[in-house]
Amino acid sequence: MTRIVIVGDVGGCADELRRVVLPATEDPDAIVVQVGDLVDRGPDSAGVLALVAERLTAAPRRWIQLIGNHEGQYLGGERFWPEPLGDDDADLLRRWWLTDRMRVACAVRTADGEEFLVTHAGITVDAWRELGEPVTATTAADLLNTRPEPLLWHDRGPLWAEAAPHLYRSWLDGPVAPPFGQVHGHSTIVSYTRRAWTCPELIRARSTVDWDARHTTTRVSGVRFVAVDPKHGRTGAPAWSPLVLEDATLLA
């Protein structure tokens, strides 16, 4: 059992990451899981990568780094962001990918026994079927970490699925219930700056939001989908928190 700290998208905001991560790394029983999108948009992508590189070197078992679509541009996906990383930072991402320091997924179990698959954008029903319909989050994470092509780069795959129209609706509309919960970044169902919902009523009726932490929780057939992207934008969110799971277990 340990304390698992799940950090949402960083988007080049090194100061915001540092403020959240440093207290967690001082706890010897804490494991940080970062859901990807370390880079782009914010003022200091290089600073973010330097911080993560230090943690992956100093305590690799206590930092789980996942890939987001912004990292995917340098690892096999198509380029879409107009401000590319420098060559050294792009090479660093490629080294992490080639040495398995950057993964697609992990799985966790809470103290109450809930299992969550953790990815950048979540897996839809179609993606779950393409994986062979795994019944546990651990199996799903293991299968995703084999880097299945072309699912990994699909516009509704685990790096690109949008929360409301793709991820949640696929499970709400589908004939099967989700076998496990999910924690993801990439997109959300609210505007934090306007404190307003941006999703259909079907999803809103099943959802709650923590405006201060910048998390949303959507219930689908008894399991939870938790979105942790704080939407830092260009300058960083004025307040936000990681998702902290006390007495949890890292499964995969």
Score class of each variant (00 low, 15 high):
D155Q: 13
F116V: 00
R156I: 09
A140M: 09
R169M: 14
A107N: 08
W197H: 12
A107V: 01
T139N: 11
Y168K: 03
A163P: 09
R101P: 07
A137I: 00
A196Y: 02
D126V: 04
Q182C: 01
L93T: 04
W160S: 09
I123Y: 10
T198Q: 15
W160H: 14
E115A: 11
P165E: 05
W171V: 00
D112H: 13
V190I: 07
P178A: 08
W97V: 06
L152F: 02
A121V: 02
P158E: 05
V108G: 09
H186Q: 11
G181C: 01
A164V: 01
V183Q: 08
L143D: 04
W97A: 13
D112E: 15
S170H: 10
R129D: 11
L144D: 00
G185R: 14
A127E: 09
A127F: 07
E133F: 05
V108N: 13
V135Q: 13
Y168N: 07
H154T: 07
I189F: 09
P150V: 05
T119Q: 07
T198F: 06
P178T: 01
W128Q: 06
W197Q: 12
I123F: 08
E133I: 01
R103H: 04
T110P: 01
F116A: 03
V176K: 08
E162R: 15
P158L: 03
L117F: 13
A105E: 02
M102N: 00
H186Y: 05
L143G: 08
P175M: 14
G113P: 06
A161R: 01
V125N: 02
Y192W: 15
A140E: 12
